[in-house]
Simulated scan of single mutants.
Amino acid sequence: MEILRVKEILNEKGWRNKDLADKIGTSENSVSAIVTGKKFPKPETLVKIADVLDIDIRELFNPSKSVDLQEIFTKDENGNLKSVGFIKK
């Protein structure tokens, strides 16, 4: 299993490796190595990647455990359900 989701996120955003490389100031080869899992980036590079992709840094990682969550709702003043978050089952 890949640790990082960089390739998936780039695809979702319609970006190429070169687009990311240009924005974080590195080579396309370095980004390619990160995307393919051949190289793990330094923490400061992870921060740059998350910043230019406009995502929380945690979104770069695949979850290491599957957690069973239950969504919790409340009713607003009109009686409509509104999600307030998740709890572990």
Rank of each mutant, 00 (worst) to 15 (best):
M1K: 13
L4V: 13
V6P: 08
I9E: 05
N11V: 13
K13M: 14
G14N: 10
G14P: 14
W15Q: 06
R16W: 03
R16V: 08
D19R: 00
D19P: 03
D19L: 01
L20Y: 02
L20S: 00
A21D: 04
D22Y: 06
D22W: 00
D22N: 12
K23A: 12
K23F: 04
K23N: 09
I24G: 00
G25H: 08
G25C: 07
S27D: 11
S30R: 07
S30A: 14
S30W: 09
V31Q: 08
T36R: 12
G37T: 06
K39I: 14
F40W: 09
F40S: 15
T45M: 15
T45D: 02
T45H: 01
L46P: 05
L46A: 08
L46F: 05
V47N: 00
K48I: 03
I49H: 02
A50C: 06
A50M: 07
A50W: 10
V52L: 06
L53W: 12
D54L: 12
D54C: 06
I55G: 01
E59S: 06
F61G: 03
F61E: 12
F61S: 04
N62G: 07
N62T: 12
N62D: 14
S64M: 15
K65C: 05
K65S: 10
K65P: 00
S66D: 11
S66A: 09
S66V: 12
V67P: 05
Q70V: 14
E71N: 04
I72K: 13
I72A: 04
F73A: 00
F73T: 04
K75S: 01
K75I: 06
D76M: 00
E77C: 05
E77S: 10
N78Y: 12
G79K: 13
L81T: 00
L81V: 06
K82I: 11
K82H: 02
K89N: 06
K89R: 08
